[in-house]
Design a protein around this nucleic acid. Structure first.
Length: 576
RNA sequence: CGAGGUGUAGCGCAGUUUGGUAGCGCGUUUGGUUCGGGACCAAAAGGUCGCAGGUUCAAAUCCUGUCACCUCGACCA
């Protein structure tokens, strides 16, 4: 492929509104163009990258006995009504009507479609287990898109669904997928992607992992341990405070705290630490508007996901009205309205002395002892894990947090969909049973963008050779020079004949333009043919990541490049 | 959905306060000189100033409405 014929354009200046580095480079390098909010055209170079990612995914899915198929993007609403998600999922699911007025949806995930398919064909235990997968367009009407391909509304995803006759078999296969995912990311050149325990969210099910690329620009917060390899999404991470500073037992006293509403003000006013405060966070159930007051230690933050899971309802931060009986800024456990649901965080357990609200304007209690004042209450973990917290695995207080981009996930779904959609098979003993499901996703475009985010310099992406749009970038400096033109053609022909992918730049432009464009292409191997080199009988060969730079005699150059490409590919378990 | 912001040539921007026939840089085309990290000279093409109303002799500029996009927040399998 000659670069001058490639349908693309590169820009010297960063387009407006780019927020993260990979997005800026992919816009400048002519990889993507926004069509609408969160909707992109992928240019030919990008499509070559995603196709290679897809090829790796296919190889690994097929290796664990996956069977590729294709579900539709558009589905009748009735399919989603069967599982109950037509009602339970919000406006993220794009709904529309067809010409006859029938309700339709655009697929954002395909559990329903997969159950719809297999319930007719997998009716005997002898057919299990099996896994089906597809690589296909998804549409999710995200409220807010971000960072180029990092968070979009329309995207390509590999989604897989496995079906089992026992929880044990699901767990066995889950581990197989876990390993396959690690191979996929390693082969795509981002071995730094790590699996973290996660919250299952709307997918249902219990055990799940997310594969995260750790980067400051990530949207998720990851909890890790310095001592051991514990890793979890903040949403799912337990908060363990460790040693409790119980404090002295003291009498309950009501004190005036005029206009002191925040923990910070309270600490300053009463000369106490945040740990000695019991703070209230107020939510409301989405459907009923019923108030939920969560109490936790003053230095901690609420983990909404854990709270949501505990109260088993969708919730949102409360609007505290005059009729609610709540006294914003002065809320405490004692004297709350009866219809308010109260949740005590584990961080409060065993502490004898708290400052907390008195449920009266400008009044707080000191010496508040939850066990004495409120009796035997249940403590649950609804706080966010924090730096220096206790690791739930090794027990050492070495928790820290980091940010990450979720590039894939795996879930043990259980029977949520097979039950709701009435899928059964006949077991060995003749009884009807619901298959147990797992599901496994990878966002292809997001992975490509994440690779760019992880592997780049100031001048452009540095694509791993396994997914690079081309393996070799051939630069003909002074292509008008007959010798240069002839040698370039020879190198291009020979490499291409041996299966190496070459992008060939034979434009009559200055070296600066040619090299800066090559940097933006991010192709791993660069071959430079120039009059200067040819005068010495050499060809320049270098790696985009600067790990290799050679001058080779003209008759050895092709073999050297070929060998180098093959060996670099082999390092990522890939072939020409 | 809440708050803020921006729409002017393919890209980046100025011009809007104070209304007067639309500009700069990059890119593109042609000719010439250059040639190892975004060269130079000369000429040229390219815009109903997001859209629709209104005010005015006159609107990119003022007013009203509307659409789109961006940022922060809410939200997020």
């Amino acid at each position: 492929m000659k670069l001058k014929n490639l349908v693309s354009k590169r820009y010297k200046e960063t387009p407006a509104d780019c927020v993260i580095a990979s997005q800026a480079l992919m816009m400048r390098g002519g990889y993507i163009k926004p069509v609408g909010n969160g909707i992109y055209t992928l240019f030919p170079a990008t499509k070559r990258i995603t196709s290679k990612i897809e090829k790796i995914i296919r190889e690994e899915m097929d290796r664990i006995d996956g069977q590729e198929l294709m579900f539709p993007v558009t589905m009748p609403a009735s399919l989603w009504q069967e599982s109950g998600r037509y009602e339970s999922i919000g406006s993220e699911l794009l709904r529309f009507t067809d010409r006859s007025g029938a309700n339709m949806v655009l697929g954002m995930t395909h559990e329903e479609a997969s159950v719809h398919f297999v319930r007719d064909v997998a009716d005997s235990y002898t057919q299990y287990p099996f896994m089906i997968y597809q690589i296909q367009t998804k549409f999710r009407d995200e409220p807010r898109c971000r960072g180029g391909l990092i968070r979009v509304r329309e995207f390509t995803m590999k989604d897989a669904y496995s079906f089992h006759t026992s929880q044990e078999d699901l767990e066995r296969y889950y581990q197989v997928c876990y390993d396959a995912y690690n191979r996929i990311f390693a082969r795509a050149g981002v071995g730094e992607v790590v699996a973290v325990a996660s919250d299952s969210g709307m997918m249902g099910g219990k055990v799940s992992h997310e594969y995260m690329l750790l980067t400051p620009v990530g949207e998720d917060t990851i909890v890790l341990c310095h001592e051991c390899d514990y890793r979890a999404n903040m949403e799912a991470a337990p908060c363990i405070v460790g040693n409790v500073e119980a404090g002295e037992v003291a009498d309950l006293a009501k004190v005036e705290t005029p206009n002191v509403k925040t923990i910070e003000d309270l600490c300053a006013f009463l000369k106490v630490t945040a740990k000695q405060c019991c703070k209230a966070v107020v939510y409301q159930e989405n459907l009923t508007d019923k108030y939920i007051v969560a109490f936790l230690r003053g230095d901690l933050d609420i983990n909404e996901t854990k709270l949501r899971n505990y109260v088993k309802a969708e919730i949102h931060p409360a609007e505290i009205t005059a009729e609610s009986g709540l006294c914003a800024g002065f809320i405490g456990p004692k004297g709350l309205p009866a219809d308010v649901r109260v949740v005590y965080d584990s961080s409060l357990k065993g502490v004898n002395w708290f400052v907390t609200g008195a449920n009266e304007t400008d009044m707080h209690y000191t010496g508040f002892n939850i066990a004495r004042e409120m009796g035997d209450v249940e403590y649950v973990d609804v706080a966010k894990a924090f730096d220096g917290g206790v690791c739930p695995v090794c027990g050492k207080p070495h928790i820290y947090t980091s940010r990450g981009i979720e590039v894939g996930n795996i879930f043990q779904l259980g029977t949520k969909y097979t039950e709701s959609m009435g899928m059964t098979y006949v077991d060995q003993d003749g009884s009807l049973k619901h298959p147990i499901m797992g599901c496994y996703g990878i966002g292809v475009g997001r992975l490509a963008a994440s690779v760019c985010e992880a592997h780049r310099d100031d001048y452009g992406p540095i694509w791993p050779i396994s997914i690079a749009p081309w393996q070799v970038h051939l630069c003909s400096l002074r292509a008008d020079n007959e010798e240069v033109a002839a040698m370039s053609q020879k190198i291009y022909d020979e490499l291409t004949a041996r299966g190496v992918e070459v992008i060939w730049d034979d434009r009559s432009v200055s070296a600066g333009v040619m090299f800066s464009d090559a940097d933006l292409f991010g192709v791993p191997v660069r071959v430079v043919v120039s009059p200067k080199g040819l005068k010495n009988g050499t060809i320049e060969i270098s790696a985009r990541d600067k790990s290799m730079q050679e001058k080779k005699p003209v008759d050895e150059a092709v073999q050297f490049v070929y060998d180098y490409v093959v060996s670099e590919l082999a390092k990522l378990d890939c072939r020409l």
